[in-house]
Design a binder for these strands. Sequence first.
DNA 1: CGATAAATGGACATCGTGTCCGTTTATTTG
DNA 2: CAAATAAACGGACACGATGTCCATTTATCG
Lengths: 187, 187
Amino acid sequence: MKHERADAARNRTKVLTAAAELFAVKDPRAVTMDDIAKAAGVGRGTLYRRYPDVASIAVALLDEHETALQRDLMSGPPPLGPGAPPAERLAAFYAAMADLLETHGNLALATELGGRRFEIGAYGFWRAHVLSLLREAAIPTPEALADTLLAPLAPEVFKFQRAQGLTLANIKSALSRLAMVVENRPG
Amino acid sequence: MKHERADAARNRTKVLTAAAELFAVKDPRAVTMDDIAKAAGVGRGTLYRRYPDVASIAVALLDEHETALQRDLMSGPPPLGPGAPPAERLAAFYAAMADLLETHGNLALATELGGRRFEIGAYGFWRAHVLSLLREAAIPTPEALADTLLAPLAPEVFKFQRAQGLTLANIKSALSRLAMVVENRPG
DNA sequence: CGATAAATGGACATCGTGTCCGTTTATTTG
DNA sequence: CAAATAAACGGACACGATGTCCATTTATCG
């Protein structure tokens, strides 16, 4: 494929760094395409050329952190990666996601503007991962449970919990209790 | 207190029925104050006089259904009301909420426009209920778990699951498995 | 039947969106 | 190095929704 033009590349990074700054400083849901264009010193048209909306810019920024976790899930050491029992892997996944939300919560929030939560590629990945854990644990009809178990990881939920005064440890603890549902036990 | 003026009362019902119609027909997130005013045959100013935004109209509509459930939770027969063990009460609550979402999902969706999920009074009620069940079950530091257990009841989650082809029964089944986390078991 | 206060409705100013297109700039080619 | 070409740029524009404001209408009371 052809090389990206120099000015294009320069503007891309200007946009991304400016957007990251904005997301970090103010409420991500209040960040507008106009804001980003202004902050990046770029025209509106230039911005829209690459990104159709604010959420997709946030996705681009968050992506790098998410793919790191995704790699660990697929081929990292246990309990995150393969090798540990499903319940432990789920708990480890929860803990890792909580850390991700703690560090990049604002970004994650911006990612879902307009209720796009389920349309984003990452959600499909997390869902597939949880689903495979449920299958490995021989849970019957795991499809519904996968979404159910993913719901508490919604950025809004995490943000709300933190705003309530709950600590990261509190939340992780609640999530690890949740992870116990994949254990088969006497009915 | 003074009586509500006749025309005011008439317009109130015109607004509410028109809004209910709109929410039922089209995507609730696309319903605008303008739409409702037009459909109700009422001016914008009249609408804003009573309701500050679309979400609050949806709240008014949903309220009646929610309060019925809230009454049953507090003083209805078990397992929904007091008397049954916490795990069963939670499962019953989940089932009732799933039914509510199945019937009034669009309304619930409209209720949370602008990410207001946690600011709405109803959420506080559900949270208090779950919290009391967790306390009764002697779960340590139950605060974080309450929000975690409530997260799968987000209207968007339910809607997504249904859109995926999952049945109401599938979802209820997943939720009742979730309810098992309140059972104390050998660690 | 006024008088009074409440209720109404639409015009207005503002803001964000997404598109369109004339202009500028990087890159390629001779 | 200079002209040619294609890509990228940026701001103007039209649109849609919001929330407010206030002149006018309407219900209610004495």
